[in-house]
Amino acid sequence: MGGWTKSFLDGSSIIVTSEDALQGKGSWSKSRLDGMSGASLSEGGRHIAITGPGEYWQSDDLEVDVGVSGPAKVMVRRLMKRIDPAERLLQVLRTEHSIMLRVIDVRFGVGTILTADTLSSIPQDKAGQWLVLEYSVEKDAFKYYYSPERI
């Protein structure tokens, strides 16, 4: 079952399944946005997630044939997290069907042993930008990048 989850620093979470979304139940933009610690999203057996305290957003790219009325087809599903200046490290954890980006705030130290080959530095000029993690439904592919604008 697909859908998205918002996780909060106080331990609570909001879970919206794809069925909920299809029925118009559960809105990313209109549900709680403050105090988030992470977000995850599932689609067709693929999973993406970002963790780390901060500001998050979610959006999808959809497509329709002009002149053909009906539901739009989901092409890309996307999670975003705004990078804080103190967040200097990015850990990328991959499996065949999932990818998780762990954004690490160096002020709080690193609580677990990190494997060096999963770590990279977040360039300082990316502070304030959005870390974007996408799953392309049409290409069955993951991609992450930084964007100056929320998408």
């Binding site: 990313w28 959809l62 329709v64």
Partner: peptide, 11 residues
């Protein structure tokens, strides 16, 4: 041919 509309949406 097919004309398409692509857009971005947040629920």
């Amino acid at each position: 041919f097919v004309q398409k509309l692509r857009f971005t949406y947040t629920s």
